[in-house]
């Protein structure tokens, strides 16, 4: 029991990653509002960042700054670097998504998916 608690507590940030990921996906799945969908997507992506950063953490390690002292344990810097890139990608995606949402709003007058679907249904020629 104690082991289990320690295992859960010890992998706390991994559990958060899973929860965030599920939350993000749930929002994407369940919300009809396009902006909310993008927000969900963002949460989802954030969970990925968290996942990478947790992965690079070495227990007891410091920040990966070369201090010159021998034998110092520091966290793996590479995932952090990678996630910087991923964050950029995430921002770009959000930007494009929001831009699209704007255009959708302009041409449909709504950003509710079911409203748009209704318009499509009536638009389709017999």
């Amino acid at each position: 029991m104690a082991d289990l608690i320690r295992s859960i507590a010890g992998h706390y940030n991994y559990w958060m990653f899973v929860i965030l990921m599920m939350t993000g996906l749930f929002i994407v799945v369940s919300r009809g509002n396009l902006i909310k969908k993008i927000a969900g997507l963002n949460i989802f992506q954030t969970s990925v960042f968290l996942f990478y950063i947790s992965m690079g953490k070495v227990t007891g390690g410091t920040a990966p700054v070369n201090t010159g002292r021998a034998g110092e344990v520091y966290s793996n810097p590479l995932p952090h670097v990678l996630i910087l890139t991923a964050i950029v990608v995430g921002i770009a995606t959000t930007a494009v998504g929001l831009a699209l949402a704007v255009r959708i709003k302009e041409s449909y007058g709504s950003i509710e998916e079911d409203v748009i679907e209704d318009m499509h249904r009536t638009e389709r020629p017999a």
């Binding site: 994407v28 997507l41 992506q45 990925v48 991923a86 998504g97 699209l100 449909y108």
Partner: peptide, 29 residues
């Protein structure tokens, strides 16, 4: 105008896919 919605759907799906992919890479790493 349906292209906008199509692009938006594509974006959501594509991003989910890419995120899955990057998670997989994370596991590999």
């Amino acid at each position: 105008r349906r292209a906008f919605k199509a692009a938006f759907d594509y974006l959501i799906m594509g991003t989910i896919g890419a995120s899955f992919f990057v998670i997989g890479i994370g596991f590999l790493y």
